[in-house]
């Protein structure tokens, strides 16, 4: 899959060299599928060249500083050191919220559990709780098989911030490369637990309530569901926001009705219009 994107990107890059008006977008892999849908749609309507690269939120923002990207996708807010650097370099980045991502906690359908607290979740992922029976005596006395996305993933970052709160994940946690693999493992393994973006969850697994709240569109938008995050795109507005041109077109489309519908299509929660 990664190779496919690499070829895809190289292809776009190759084409873009000959284009005059190019829009360069870099950043979060979480936002990548949204941006991809947007670009597909935009290319039908306008004659602009857009290159999209998913290399992580930090890389995107760093590219915005260097001027090698016009738009940085990010699944997190700016870090302190980035704010300081902005101040030092006299730059001003404007954030746009483009949608929300809720992280669902999933277990096997056969497991007799409906709800979990943030505290319990933290104990599972830091290795303090190792058996399901420790959580609740009614649960089987079997080891919990814990799955996580690898550290490169934006979902990991959010989970770490909200659930682990700075504590380190136990080394026994299996770091896997893809969300699909997590879902398949939970589907097949009656004692597994994993977390994934809400948009990816299928019928094959059970979603747990966290702090007694079910992750739904409503609870994520209202902030009731604890493990969710806004998704951003940052634009360098040191010299003001552009009045015309590809950046302007892109922003307008992102917050438009069609653009927000595509956010939902990519598996996330639209920020506007609902």
């Amino acid at each position: 899959m990664k190779k496919f994107w690499l070829v895809f990107m190289l292809l776009i890059m190759g084409i873009s060299i000959f284009a005059t008006e190019t829009l360069v977008i870099k950043g979060s892999n979480t936002v990548f599928p949204i941006a991809q849908l947007w670009i597909e749609e935009l290319k039908k309507q306008y004659d602009i060249r857009i290159t999209l690269e998913g290399a992580g939120s930090s890389t995107g923002i760093a590219a915005l500083f260097n001027g090698t990207a016009d738009i940085a996708n990010s699944s997190r807010w700016l870090k302190d050191k980035e704010l300081v650097r902005m101040h030092e370099e006299g730059k001003y980045f404007v954030p746009f919220i483009i949608g929300y991502d809720g992280i669902a906690i999933i277990v096997n359908k056969k497991l007799n559990i409906e709800s979990i607290s943030l505290e319990e979740l933290k104990d599972i992922y830091t290795g303090k709780i190792r058996y399901w029976a420790q959580l609740n005596p009614n649960l089987p006395k079997k080891p919990i098989v814990v799955y996580s996305r690898n550290t490169a993933s934006g979902t990991f970052e959010t989970f770490e911030n909200i659930v682990l709160k700075g504590e380190k994940m136990s080394p026994t946690v299996r770091m896997v490369e893809s969300t699909q693999l997590e879902i398949d493992s939970v589907k097949n393994n009656p004692y597994a637990i994993a977390y994934t973006g809400l948009g990816y969850v299928t019928e094959d697994v059970k979603i747990l309530k966290v702090e007694k709240v079910m992750p739904t569109k409503a609870t994520i938008l209202s902030g009731e569901y604890p493990i969710s995050r806004p998704l951003f795109m940052f634009i360098d507005a040191t010299n003001g926001l552009p009045d015309r041109g590809p950046v302007k077109i892109y922003i307008n489309f992102a917050v438009s009705k069609k653009g927000q519908e595509l956010v939902e299509k990519a598996g996330y929660i639209a920020a506007y219009g609902f």
């Binding site: 892999n29 890389t59 760093a62 690898n150 770091m175």
Partner: peptide
């Protein structure tokens, strides 16, 4: 489970800050 040097590189090189 286990984790080798090769899989660590493959898994993390993709999104590490340059």
């Amino acid at each position: 489970p286990l984790r080798t040097l090769t899989s660590a590189i493959a898994s993390e090189m993709g999104e590490v800050e340059l």
